[in-house]
Computed example of a mutant assay.
Amino acid sequence: MFPIRILLMLVVAFGLAACGGGSKFRKYNGPEVTSIQVHKGARKMYLLHHSKVLEEYDISLGFQPVGHKQFEGDGKTPEGTYFISHHNPKSRYHLSVGISYPNAADQAYAAAMGKSPGGDIMIHGRTRYKGTNEGDWTAGCIAVTDREMEEIYSMLRRNTPIHILP
């Protein structure tokens, strides 16, 4: 009876260790990502090293995907050139990287209209989102799968330009 208990305990211990799944923080040792292109109409994001595409992702956008983000709550994803501003390891959506929206022009336009431009635009995963995770569902962010976000998070550096196209 005693050897069977030990055997069962070992089987359970190894089983739990195998289910650990590892860390969400990956290492990347490939070519530097020199820019990001987001093609909103095609729902695609490309990480580039100069003109070479390193990775391609299917994306979800803001729930009002057509047009440039102008105001807080409009549900649009910005268009234009911005930069990666920071990494957020404690994101509500698994992991995220910040996009430098709003820039000075975005702020000035919104102020002239007497509104807030909004902010907190990110590339992020899907964890803890309670909706369908299908179609365009974000408040203006760019969403990918959690697994893809782990890869993206490891590849991007602060100040990497991101070109968000219609």
Rank of each mutant, 00 (worst) to 15 (best):
S116K: 12
E79Q: 04
Y109V: 09
P89F: 05
T127H: 08
P166H: 05
E151A: 12
G125D: 11
D58G: 09
M122K: 13
F14M: 14
A104G: 03
V12K: 06
K27T: 10
L8Q: 04
V38R: 09
H50M: 12
Y109S: 10
L16F: 03
T34G: 05
E148A: 15
T77Y: 01
M9R: 09
H94P: 04
G20T: 05
H39A: 15
A18F: 13
G21A: 08
E55Q: 14
V53D: 07
S96Q: 02
H49V: 02
H49F: 06
A104L: 02
F2Q: 15
I152D: 14
E55M: 12
L156V: 11
L47Y: 04
T34A: 06
I164V: 05
M1S: 14
F83E: 14
P65N: 06
K27S: 11
H124Y: 15
T127I: 11
P117W: 00
E151N: 13
A110Q: 01
E32T: 03
K24I: 13
Y57S: 15
V12Q: 07
Q64K: 13
D120L: 07
R157A: 05
G73D: 03
A13T: 03
S23L: 03
G80H: 10
K27P: 08
G98P: 05
D74Y: 10
I59S: 04
